[in-house]
Design a protein around this nucleic acid. Structure first.
Ligand SMILES: [Mn+2]
Ligand SMILES: [Mn+2]
Ligand SMILES: [Zn+2]
Ligand SMILES: [Zn+2]
Lengths: 139, 139
DNA sequence: CAATAGTTTAGAACAATTATAATGTAGAAA
DNA sequence: TTTCTACATTATAATTGTTCTAAACTATTG
């Protein structure tokens, strides 16, 4: 929930020039109370809804990738057809409804620490993410 | 670790005609002690190494998809670029080394039951899978 | 056998993503 | 302010993984 001048600062601090395209994408992605998940095409649609002048598809891809590199977005491997991105960059988990193709956050606090009783020599754990697949409860 | 006539039975029992292509793919996928992960292209390579006559790419795709549908393979969402498949169809978890793009099984017994302290109304949990990202332990 | 439904195949089509190369622009230097 | 330059955007082409098509082939049944 920042205003444009704050996005400009944020971009500059990241070493990214605050172009009008990047600022617009910041607004669409971050100017909201709730975080959300999106595909590139969904993002393009959102952008076109709030803005008259269009941003080229290449720029949307470029921007999403640089935001991911800077840590402002996470990529979520759910579907091998399309990349899903997440504006929630905190450590968290997901419910996924394969039927509805619906992805819902699970707060890290709502998952008790996962104990892994094995390890790989020479490797250290970087993150532990839980994916909970759900289905309709037609009991 | 079955022989051809057992694959033929298995295929027939699944309602799949035991063609020589499907039998060959069964051999490559299941005639081994260890389960493994693969992409379609890696499978095509494996096939061409053990066989003179080639199986068309379309058939490899078709077969992998029907085996997945029959429950003989699982698809693993690791990478949004390419589909990864797993000949280990038991419930288990994964270590993933993003650097080496290396995927290693974690036995279900090596992960203590994951407690999720939240739920979605009207939905029931179908599975809980843990992805542990690892990196080089350069300490 | 002959008939038929299922299968394989080469290649076309498709969709997501990335590369290209020309044009535009933000920021710094003059 | 003007100029310069590295960075950014864009339209479009290229690439890649995957699916579709429709013709040829084959396992199975009668
Ligand atoms: Mn798929
Ligand atoms: Mn990707
Ligand atoms: Zn999320
Ligand atoms: Zn596995």
């Amino acid at each position: 929930m920042l205003n444009n001048s704050q996005y400009i600062k944020k971009l500059r601090n990241s070493g990214l020039r605050p172009t009008k395209q990047r600022i617009k994408i910041c607004e669409v992605l971050f100017n909201t109370d709730k975080t959300f998940h999106f595909t590139i095409n969904e993002l393009v649609t959102r952008i076109s809804k709030v803005s008259d002048d269009k941003i080229s598809l290449a720029t949307v891809y470029n921007t999403v990738h640089s935001f991911k590199k800077k840590g402002y977005l996470k990529e979520i491997p759910i579907n091998s057809d399309q990349s899903y991105f997440d504006t929630n960059t905190s450590h968290h988990h997901h419910f996924y409804d394969e039927g509805q193709k619906n992805l819902i956050d699970i707060d890290d606090a709502d998952v008790e620490p996962v104990k892994i009783n094995t390890k790989i020599p020479g490797k250290r754990i970087k993150s532990v993410e839980v994916l909970v697949k759900v289905e309709d409860d037609k009991s």
